[in-house]
Write a protein that binds this DNA or RNA. Structure first.
Length: 593
DNA sequence: CGCGGCGGCGCG
DNA sequence: AAAGCGCGCCGCCGCG
């Protein structure tokens, strides 16, 4: 049963009124008005009295409603986030003639039941998107006035039914239903993570900053250690007024000093130092301070004192995640760079006394997903009970293949998923193809669809965007040899995108299911008759962090492992692909892994 | 002056 | 100085 939560139509003055409307078997049932301050209590009571019959709460936007629940001390069990699901359905329907049902387009995506993707019609059939809600109908408040103009429960109930019909009419309703549930749970988890925050020891962080940069500088000034290095660099280059932060100035100064690099990047500088060991010591002694300066500059600007002031309150880092913010369905994050916390800075992520961090990292998710999607039993077997890359190397050894080392296996497999053609990865590809023809053929089919301007889909049904009209224009007009070359390059490039999309996107779906399973198990588990206090506090593509009392850590560890395998089965059913997880129970993030 | 693009670097 | 995917953030730099 669904219960839709939207604005009440009886817009009384004073406290904001919500309305709850039940929807079951496609019919709207009872209605009830709930004042905002009682919303959490209402949800809690309804869930309790209906247990074990599942209730799925429906709302416009988790980002709006979840903070209300969390502030009232509850978090619903299941949900359907209309904004998130509409986005998933609408990408698939960019081509659709109809804005009522999404089904016709989804049918076109399906060549045959065995194939998880197919071709869409050519670009000229692309229509303007006719979503019901392009006007921001689903947004719950007007940014300019801050006034609530939330959609009513009745309006949302209509949208729900539209979405449910579209899902039922899809080629794989079970999969799309699972995606809707997982994505919605992701919406709740993201809100919970933001609410609880990640433990962040401000004084440890400050200690790290002072030790590496020196004391906090005055505004607009460089920290002492950076200034020292800058002075050293200016002296060695004989350019007293050089701004070390300016790539242009720096590049010119380097070239004047006889260091013939094409860019000032770390890689270029390291490469130059390696290629010219015979050159004067003074010149190489310049590279080191320069690299050191870059390292410090990065720490200072990205995760320095200003960052601490802005993002860490009361020893908690509260990042904003954007569920499905990446085209492939991965989460994005805005503000605070939650998904780029440098290794060195992780020392600041420390457990308080009596608490522990459970840091779990799923091993080689993308190649395992490839094995599962492509049904490549040999690749699945290579990863059973062991490191997948090592498993591949061992197979290579037994069969006398040139691909017989772990490092090679990793480069080759990543290259296959990214579309590498040159370098070591390109060289190893033929051997990989011989070993795993089914998996390799799968990635190449995905690439071919993209090269021709088609769209691909993840296993659960998230569809890749169509190329831009400029892309199609480039394919159409190939007057000169230069045009032809550009068209080919663009085609290949889009092929690499779709090739990667299916794997990265399905891996993101696996990760969503993993987290959803963890959340569910954490909620359902008790210790000495009491619910667990441990919370999911961080997520990074294939890694999660749980924070809670030390005594719960081993339980959490088991939950995380079980959830990983359960996620695989939820997606693919019973398959021979394993999803092993590396777990560190630690009081400091930097010591994990 | 503000803005967007870009080089550079952090993460998976 | 990457190759070969997906991101966010910072400072610089050129544009209007």
């Amino acid at each position: 049963m669904y219960i839709v939560l939207g604005a009440s139509e009886s817009g009384a003055a004073g406290e904001f009124l919500w309305e709850a409307v039940t929807v079951a078997d496609g019919r709207v049932g009872s209605r009830r008005t709930v004042p905002e301050s009682k919303l959490g209590q209402f949800v809690h009571e309804v869930e309790d009295s209906n247990r074990p019959a599942p209730i799925r709460w429906v709302w416009a936007d988790s980002r709006q409603i979840m903070p209300l629940f969390l502030a009232q001390g509850i978090s619903p069990e299941r949900s359907h986030d209309l904004r998130l699901i509409q986005r998933i359905l609408s990408i698939a329907t960019t081509h659709s003639q109809s804005h009522i049902t999404f089904a016709p387009t989804l049918d076109l995506l399906q060549e045959s039941p065995e194939k998880p993707w197919g071709m869409l019609p050519p670009a000229r059939q692309i229509q303007g998107q006719d979503s019901l809600f392009d006007d921001g109908f689903l947004s719950a408040s007007k940014p300019d006035t801050g006034q609530k103009t939330a959609p009513t429960a009745s309006q949302l109930a209509v949208e729900l039914q539209t979405q449910l019909r579209a899902i039922e009419a899809a080629p794989h309703p079970r999969r799309l239903k699972l995606l809707a549930a997982a994505e919605s749970t992701g919406g709740m988890i993201a809100a919970e993570m933001k609410f609880h925050g990640m433990p962040w020891n401000k004084s440890l962080h400050e200690k790290l900053l002072v030790e590496t940069l020196g004391p906090r500088p005055a505004p607009f000034e460089r920290p002492a250690e950076m200034e020292k290095l800058a002075t050293e660099i200016r002296e060695k280059l004989a350019t007293p007024k050089l701004n070390v932060d300016s790539p242009q100035e720096l590049l010119r100064a380097l070239q004047s000093a006889g260091i013939r690099v094409k860019s000032t990047s770390k890689w270029a500088l390291k490469g130059w130092a390696e290629e010219n060991p015979q050159l004067a010591q003074q010149r190489r002694s310049l590279i080191e301070p320069l690299l050191a300066y870059k390292k410090l500059a990065r720490l200072f600007t990205a995760n320095g004192w200003n960052w601490l002031d802005e993002w860490v309150q009361d020893d908690r880092f509260h990042p904003s995640y954007e569920v499905g913010g990446v085209v492939t369905g991965r989460w994005g994050a805005h503000g605070g760079g939650a998904m780029q916390i440098p290794r060195d800075v992780r020392t600041a992520v420390a457990a308080e006394p009596g608490k522990m961090l459970v840091v779990a990292d799923a091993s080689q998710v993308e190649p395992r997903i490839l094995a599962a999607m492509s049904g490549d039993e040999k690749l699945a077997l290579a990863g059973r009970g062991t490191d997948l890359y090592l498993g591949i190397a061992k197979i290579g050894e037994h069969t006398g293949s040139a691909l017989n080392e772990r490092a090679q296996a990793k480069i080759a497999l990543l290259g296959a998923m990214y579309g590498a053609t040159t370098g070591e990865s390109g060289k190893l590809m033929p051997h990989l193809r011989t070993m795993f023809p089914q998996a390799i053929e799968f990635t190449e089919r995905a690439a071919r669809v993209g090269e021709q301007g088609g769209q691909v889909s993840t296993y659960l049904g998230r569809v890749s965007p169509a190329p831009s009209s400029e892309w199609f224009e480039r394919q159409r007009r190939q007057a000169t040899a230069e045009d032809e070359r550009a068209a080919m390059a663009a085609s290949r490039s889009w092929g690499r995108f779709t090739r990667n999309f299916v794997v990265q996107g399905t891996a993101a779906e696996w990760a969503l299911c993993w987290m959803a399973q963890i959340r569910q198990k954490l909620r359902a588990t008790t210790l000495f008759g009491k619910p667990l206090q441990s919370q999911l506090v961080y997520f990074l593509h294939d890694e999660i962090m749980i924070y809670g009392p030390e005594r719960e850590a081993s339980l959490c560890e088991q939950i995380v492992r079980d959830a990983a395998q359960a996620a695989g089965e939820l997606l693919f059913g019973h398959i021979s692909v394993e999803f092993p997880v590396t777990i560190a129970v630690t009081d400091n993030y930097s010591t994990a892994k």
